[in-house]
Simulated assay, not measured.
Amino acid sequence: MPARTEWSISAPRTLEIEEPVSTLNVRLVGGTVNVVGTSDGSTPRLEISEIQGPPLTVEYLDGTLSLAYQDLPWKGLLAFRERKRWHRSAVVSVTVPATTRVEVGVVGAHAVISGISGRTDLRGVSGDSTLVGLTGEVRADTVSGRVEAQAVTGDLRFHSVSGDLTVIDGAGGAVHADSVSGDMVLDLDHTARGADVRLTTVSGEVAIRLPDPADARVDANTTSGAVANAFDDLRVSGQWGAKRITGALGAGTGTLKVTTVSGGLTLLRRPAFEDARAAAAGGGARPDSGPRGAAPTDSPAEKKVL
């Protein structure tokens, strides 16, 4: 294959990329993109199983594989507005080496990225995204799309206007997130003790479930939202209006800092038996957290509401 190869895809097609791939760039309007990282040395593979509307351009150049609509730029994608007269969608699956740097931009499309150890950048105007088993650094920026991260061990940075963030079996990496109105739900497992978690939102609800025993210095506050705290070692100050949860859990080596203006704030305790069960199984166990986006729950006796 020459250094540069380009295809115009207007019908379902499968491509085997014989040259090494170090960077993947996908920009899609409508449909689904599924990116899977592999470590078995298999050939990178691109499958477009459905496509409607204008053709997609696939390009390979010096280790970078790109799949995109030519009129959808990577820079400025978050300012992009989907035009209803654009009737287009595609269902795309891409298999690349786990070490690949991945850039995915979607407008009204669902994105699933799994098994990547390289850096992952996700940009979404709308449409939900799922991140599974990523061990490299992750940056997710959305306008209104929801992001669910499961068993992500790399540092996660999230920025959104109204999109929700759900972290399941958070495992050790830093989590820095900010939004205007999006809700944030974090369930951190035993490997996240000592992690750096910093969350900021204006009107979104924040619910965090910490491992037991936990290891973090806590400073969480809300200006007008309700507060629920399941830890006796933490102090809740303020009875009317602004409320603050402060104190140290365990050795206090980690950081948990939360700021919300009008959203509620909930700190829950993850039962020790869940972590023991996960360790026995050799991996993270997803807790029964109820409907998607809902906060994990403890027994009423373990939760203090102020």
Rank of each mutant, 00 (worst) to 15 (best):
Arg83Cys: 02
Val94Leu: 03
Glu47Ala: 13
Gly41Cys: 05
Ser66Tyr: 08
Lys75Gln: 15
Thr64Glu: 13
Pro73Asp: 14
Gly63Ala: 03
Ser42Tyr: 04
Arg45Leu: 08
Val58Gly: 00
Trp74Tyr: 12
Glu50Val: 11
Lys84Tyr: 11
Trp74Val: 04
Arg81Ala: 04
Ser49His: 01
Ser49Gln: 04
Gly53Asn: 00
Ser66Ile: 03
Asp40Tyr: 01
Lys75His: 15
Ser39Asp: 11
Glu82Gln: 13
Val58Ala: 07
Ile51Cys: 01
Leu72Met: 12
Thr64Gly: 06
Gly63Glu: 05
Pro54Trp: 01
Leu67Met: 06
Glu82Leu: 11
Thr57Asp: 13
Val96Arg: 00
Leu72Cys: 10
Leu61Asn: 15
Thr57Lys: 12
Leu78Tyr: 06
Ser93Thr: 14
Glu59Val: 11
Ser89Thr: 02
Val92Gln: 09
Arg45Tyr: 03
Arg85Ala: 03
Ile48His: 08
Gly41His: 02
Tyr69His: 15
Lys75Asp: 15
Gly41Trp: 03
Gly41Met: 06
Ile51Gly: 06
Thr95Ala: 13
Asp71Pro: 11
Ala68Cys: 12
Asp71Val: 12
Trp74Glu: 10
Pro44Met: 02
Leu72Tyr: 10
Leu65Thr: 05
Ala68Met: 13
Tyr60Asp: 06
Leu56His: 01
Pro44Tyr: 01
Gly53Arg: 02
Leu61Trp: 13
Ala79Gln: 11
Trp86Cys: 01
Asp40Thr: 02
Ser42Gly: 05
Gly63Cys: 07
Gly76Met: 04
Leu65Met: 15
Glu50Lys: 15
Ala79Cys: 00
Ala68Lys: 14
Thr64Gln: 12
Thr38Asn: 09
Ala90Ser: 11
Arg81Ile: 01
Tyr69Gln: 10
Asp62Ser: 15
Leu67Cys: 10
Arg85Ser: 13
Glu82Met: 09
Val92Leu: 08
Ser93Ile: 01
Ser66Gln: 14
Ser39Met: 10
Gln52Trp: 12
Lys84Gln: 08
Ala90Thr: 05
Arg81Thr: 10
Ser93Phe: 02
Thr43Gln: 03
Val94Gly: 06
Ser39Asn: 11
Gly41Ile: 06
Tyr60Ile: 04
Arg81Lys: 15
Ile48Leu: 09
Leu56Thr: 07
Leu61Gln: 15
Leu77Ser: 12
Glu59Phe: 01
Ile48Ser: 01
Ala90Val: 05
Glu82Gly: 15
Gln70Phe: 08
Thr95Asp: 15
Thr95Ser: 15
Ala68Gly: 12
Asp71Asn: 13
Val96Gly: 07
Tyr69Asn: 07
Val96Phe: 03
Ser89Cys: 02
Val96His: 05
Ile48Gln: 03
Glu47Ile: 07
Leu56Pro: 03
Asp40Met: 00
Tyr69Thr: 04
Ala68Phe: 15
Val92Ile: 15
Glu59Tyr: 05
Ser89Gly: 00
Gly76Phe: 10
Arg83Val: 00
Leu72His: 04
Gly63Leu: 10
Ile48Tyr: 06
Arg45Trp: 02
Ser93Trp: 01
Gly63Met: 05
Pro55Glu: 09
Thr38His: 11
Ser89Asn: 01
Val96Ala: 05
His87Val: 14
His87Glu: 14
Pro44Gln: 02
Lys75Ile: 11
Gly41Glu: 04
Lys84Ile: 09
Asp40Asn: 04
Gly63Lys: 00
Asp62Asn: 14
His87Asp: 13
Gly63Phe: 06
Arg45Pro: 02
Val91Asp: 06
Ser39Trp: 11
Arg88Tyr: 07
Trp74Gly: 03
Ser49Glu: 11
Val92Phe: 02
Phe80Gln: 12
Ser39Ile: 07
